[in-house]
Simulated assay, not measured.
Amino acid sequence: MLIDEHNIPSPDIVELPYHALIGFVAQNQGVSYLPSIMVEKINYKSVVFLPLQGTPLKREMYLYANDENTLKKLKRQFNY
Rank of each mutant, 00 (worst) to 15 (best):
N7Q: 12
S32D: 07
V31Y: 12
I22W: 00
I42M: 07
G23V: 08
N28D: 12
P56V: 12
K41P: 08
L63Y: 01
H6Y: 15
I3P: 05
L2I: 13
E40A: 14
P56G: 15
V47E: 00
D67K: 03
P17W: 04
V25R: 00
D4P: 06
Q77F: 06
F78W: 05
Q27P: 01
V31P: 07
H19L: 15
A65D: 02
V25P: 01
N69S: 14
N28C: 10
P35R: 09
L63Q: 02
F49M: 04
V47R: 02
D4A: 14
H19W: 13
L34N: 08
V25E: 03
T70N: 05
E68N: 05
K41S: 12
E15V: 14
M38W: 10
N43M: 12
S46Q: 10
L34I: 09
S46T: 14
M1Y: 14
Q29G: 06
E68T: 10
L50V: 12
L52G: 08
I37S: 15
V14H: 12
Q77W: 04
P17F: 05
M1N: 13
V31C: 13
Y33G: 08
V47W: 02
D4N: 12
I13F: 05
E15A: 15
P51Q: 04
N7F: 08
N66R: 08
A20Y: 07
L2P: 05
P11I: 00
Y18T: 15
E40L: 10
Y64S: 09
S10N: 13
D4Y: 09
K41C: 12
L34S: 06
N79P: 02
F24L: 03
R59V: 15
K75Q: 01
K41T: 14
Y64T: 05
N66S: 12
A65M: 00
S46M: 07
R59D: 14
F49T: 03
Q77E: 11
